[in-house]
Amino acid sequence: MTRMAAEQRHRIRFTLNGEAVDRACEPRMLLTDFLRHEIGATGTHVGCEHGVCGACTVNVDGRPARACLTLTLQVEGSEVRTVESLADRQGRLGLLQSAFRRHHALQCGFCTPGILMSLDALFARRANADEAEIRDVLTGHLCRCTGYAPIVRAALEAAAELRGETNREAVDA
């Protein structure tokens, strides 16, 4: 393992939501702080800084990760995706986000980015994820506003849409 001098800034390169990042930071810089305060990607939230609440969940090389327990230098060469990647550039919400909106699956919205990223990773990995799997993933997140039921419903509906069981456009029209 490369040994990093604590007091120095080190070069860090990775891909964030498809765009190259090439910067420098101290070894102790948390990924949450780097994303939020160095890059300005403030969608990733900090709720506990000890890995329990899940608000800071991002996607590193296709797997969900707690950004508050990740040092920035650990993502060297990785592909990092955050909640900012879920809507398109025109701001149109993605399928999962739309389901959250329809079901009122958020109130203050502080925990929501982490939940979206965990579910997004689940659906990417397991397109056929069932309710038990969805609930299992959601146990890694704390939400103080919603009582969870609408989150489960939104996730189930998004999963059904992903499987092609419902056509949202048809329902909306």
Binding site: T42, V83, E84, F110, T112
Partner: peptide
């Protein structure tokens, strides 16, 4: 649907930090 949601769902909320 809530007017608050699109920003909160796409990382564009404006919390104090």
């Amino acid at each position: 649907p809530r007017v608050e949601d699109p920003a909160l769902l796409s990382g564009r909320g404006r919390f104090i930090d």
